[in-house]
Amino acid sequence: MTDKKIERRDFLFTATYAVGAVGVGAVVWPMIDQMNPDASVKALASTEVDISTVSPGKTITVLWRGKPVFIRRRTQDEIVEAKAVKMEELKHPEKDEDRAKNPEWLVMLGVCTHLGCVPLDQKGEYNGWFCPCHGSHYDISGRIRKGPAPTNMEIPKYEFVNANTIKIG
């Protein structure tokens, strides 16, 4: 067998393997993608909430994408307290203005950033939220102050449709 022949045969086998591998990849992808959110789940991405009945100092919890969203109408004192915190005291520095577009309303994903439990309202050392699972303390702006959670509670995408309605998502 000459060298040229061997070369051609090797090329044939390599091409066969390569084309075969592409096919295997193409078959595997649908099997993986089927576990991603399906079209009906994606379509439910936004929800509208009526906030006309929430009085100052109260929090309501609504379900959005299967997770709780805290909507708190903060009192004047709470707003002052939230704004007064110095950035260097924070583990995850974020200004309160950046977290609450309208300072009276804090809209936040009620999920502890440690391992996903739902923190308790008006508990903990910082007058905000406290996660009972592993002891994370959040302030009245939902920022992590003490405990194992790495970051502040997440702010979802939301907008005020009118004075009484918030659209989340």
Binding site: P30, Q34, D38, A39, S40
Partner: peptide
Amino acid sequence: EHIMRDVNYGWLI
């Protein structure tokens, strides 16, 4: 029907 319509590649599978 949900598999056929909404699940990603559900119809194929």
